[in-house]
Amino acid sequence: MRTARMTFHVGDETSTHYELSHLQALEAESIFIMREVAAQFERPVLLFSGGKDSIVLMRLAEKAFRPGRFPFPVMHVDTGHNFPEVIEFRDRLVEELGERLIVANVQDSIDAGRVREETGPRASRNRLQTTTLLDAIAEHGFDAAFGGARRDEERARAKERVFSFRDDFGQWDPKNQRPELWSLYNGQIRKGEHVRVFPISNWTELDVWQYIAQEGLEVPSIYFAHTREVFERDKMLYATNEHMELLDGETPFELSVRYRTVGDMTCTGAVRSTANSLLEVVTEIAATRITERGETRADDRVTEAAMEDRKREGYF
């Protein structure tokens, strides 16, 4: 679905000073960051999940490099447990943009014995992705990987740099980060190390939706309200799906829901919603009193420092 394009004028020439709206300022900063990566690194890659944040990254890459092609491929780490709507969307978007797509499959890592599949009703491939991601980075020799993470998402991320250094084991050391001053990004690394780069670090969830509206970007249909068979577990609503076994007392029922984040079906919860237009979604988000990860991500609920721990290991 496409939405009507909003009109925003650049600057304000009627007044004596030239000003950018906050979204224009954020966009200009993000474009600058993407171009720095293209210039400073030999083999960058853009990590694409099919979620709203990486959709924004794709548009920012168009803004940074058109009429040229992206000076990097796009890579998706596919757990095999993604929503089919998202996979379909991914393939269509990459084709429309005429860019190169690499798919790294968690199933391949399992088959090769690199990771062992979790078992039981609460099994998830969320953590296994890290190995697949790091293997793919090593295999292709990537020295920089763009991600769509934002600092407003989570406490550990609030302290992460825009250029976030990873050692040759792919690990993040939060206590030993390079100071980041002005817009002078230090991308110097040794062979085998890489940098995760977060061009939309300073955007909030609302900024992302505002930008999607402004640019008229298409997003996967699961972001809008639809009727789906779900079941409740740990106070979250999960889609019934082939990868999750129901526990005793869990009964599926139909409900109007939408997704606020896009991740694996095994760890991403739906929210009760009837919002089926961009306006209604944005209104819902502006009025919500719960954070997006708190509401929808089981992976952050494991311990108090779940995200920090996964990031240290090399997670997105």
């Binding site: 406490r155 420092a305 920090e308």
Partner: peptide
């Protein structure tokens, strides 16, 4: 604002 394990 104290986001890291060591900080807490």
């Amino acid at each position: 604002t104290d986001g890291l394990r060591a900080e807490r």
